[in-house]
Design a protein around this nucleic acid. Structure first.
Lengths: 132, 132
DNA sequence: TATAAACTCTCCCCTTACTGGAAAGTAAAG
DNA sequence: CTTTACTTTCCAGTAAGGGGAGAGTTTATA
């Protein structure tokens, strides 16, 4: 099938699929006459796999690792698990950071009148002398 | 003072400060002879302000807004508060998304043996047929 | 069969918010 | 006077594609 159909089957944009071809992630056969790429069901499965992994916040490089593990029928599952646990830890870190930000901003917002007067604790906090 | 001192006072890199000059955020006076930029204490205060707002996850454009509100002595505080509440909502959204990801990954990881055998529920989940 | 619409190709620029490096000029220190 | 430390501009690159131009291909319609 052509790239458009493969893309829609995989739930990705044509641009994205072409990009994956360019970086050698899912390199479909390309007709030397027309330049048209030809995708197999197997390629579509890989594209779906990548799409899902990307939605799980795995980077392109991590997807590449996962994909090679996925294609290696003898892979040990511990490698996949390790990658997943790392990703979880990364997400936890980001969560903590964002929670901290939210709490601080929330604190500032609740102390701000939010009216037509110029005094604003938020700006005061932002302009306070160096915080470290 | 020169850019190096201004940057260290503001807790930013020289590159960053130069970048802020280029995009017209904090445009310091520039000696026409030497090309050296000259930073005042006022400029440093602005740089600090921006640095802090950036750490609060405000984008460059939002920082520009905040900065102009900060410099306008007659601004109504409600504008600042609105911007802050928007930012909080944005962060909340991102938090929910990340929590969902973490939970799903966690679920997968707990069902994976993580040993030397090839069977892996994580990869199975990633390669399962279309999820929507 | 002619033509129009839909699809595909490559190529280049754009995004965010910088960071790194090269080559060259300037200033301060020894 | 030389070395070292700063500073300048310019170019390139990051992640992960998106937008659009211009050209070729395939399919559908008149």
């Amino acid at each position: 099938m052509n790239i458009g159909k493969a893309a829609s089957k995989a739930g990705l944009s044509v641009k994205t699929v072409r990009y994956y071809a360019n970086i050698g992630m899912v390199a479909a056969y390309q007709d030397p006459q027309t330049g048209y790429r030809e995708y197999s069901d197997d390629d579509v499965a890989k594209l779906q796999f990548i799409g899902k992994a990307r939605r799980f916040n795995f980077s392109i490089e991590e997807c590449r690792e996962l994909l090679s593990l996925y294609q290696d029928k003898n892979r040990p599952s511990k490698e996949v698990k390790a990658l997943t646990l790392e990703k979880i830890a990364e997400i936890e870190e980001k969560l903590a950071e964002l929670q901290g930000l939210r709490d601080q901003l929330h604190h500032l917002a609740t102390h701000c009148q939010g009216d037509d007067r110029p005094d604003c604790p938020i700006l005061e906090a932002l302009s306070a002398s160096p915080d470290r």
